[in-house]
Design a binder for these strands. Structure first.
Lengths: 109, 109
DNA sequence: TAAACATATTCACTTATGCGCATATATCAA
DNA sequence: TTGATATATGCGCATAAGTGAATATGTTTA
């Protein structure tokens, strides 16, 4: 495997690890609706302001969201809606897995 | 937000964190082609056997791959091809992000 | 400039993740 | 049962990631 492949795979994993936190997933789904400021997101998701800011930083550094200052506020927006498509796909996988397990349990009775 | 929503979001994040490692991504892409035994995967990806086994365990525990013992070997297979679809989507996002940055650099010259 | 508000960051700490090495477990064949 | 092979796991360590509390930075208005 080439070094380039390794680097790309690492970046690929970096994007996935940006998604690997419940609050960041909720942040992305919120931003899929419309742009939000940090405080609005914090209130909406009931997370503290510093924690919200830190999670947004992670998403921003990995290019998943954009930040634009609007006066005293900073407005965050989703960079690419395919992130939501990917999250939805994974949620579908999860749903089917849970349904499958539920069926197994029913079979056992 | 309900407790149930939180639980589902946590499981959603657990799937994402299963993808959040370069070797696990490579394992999944390999298994997308055909089933493999642990040793074959280890040789194919040039990872040690214990490390391969542990990464497969993570994928297995989160329901992303299936393991079936075949005599002395254990054959792993991809559980749901939509995982690859989701990974491909994220790779597309990555590609466009890199292309965008490359354009910015060209503009600077 | 000072006050008020929004956002970002630092610090100290805890927890989670990943690895190499050695070893345990499982299966089959002789 | 013993030996050979494949797979899984325990241990110790290093490092990454996440948190609350406090504080710094940035921006606007009075």
């Amino acid at each position: 495997m080439t070094n380039l492949t390794q680097e790309v795979t690492q970046l690929h994993a970096d994007i996935c690890s940006a998604l690997a936190d419940p609050r960041r997933i909720l942040l992305l789904y919120a931003l899929a609706e419309k742009p939000y400021t940090v405080n609005d997101l914090a209130k909406y998701l009931e997370i503290s302001q510093p924690v919200t800011s830190r999670h947004l930083k992670i998403l921003r550094e990995r290019g998943l969201v954009n930040a634009t200052r609007d006066g005293i506020n900073v407005e965050y927006s989703l960079n690419d809606h395919r992130l939501i498509d990917a999250l939805d796909l994974l949620r579908d996988v999860l749903r089917d897995r849970i349904a499958h397990r539920a069926n197994l349990i029913v079979e056992l009775k």
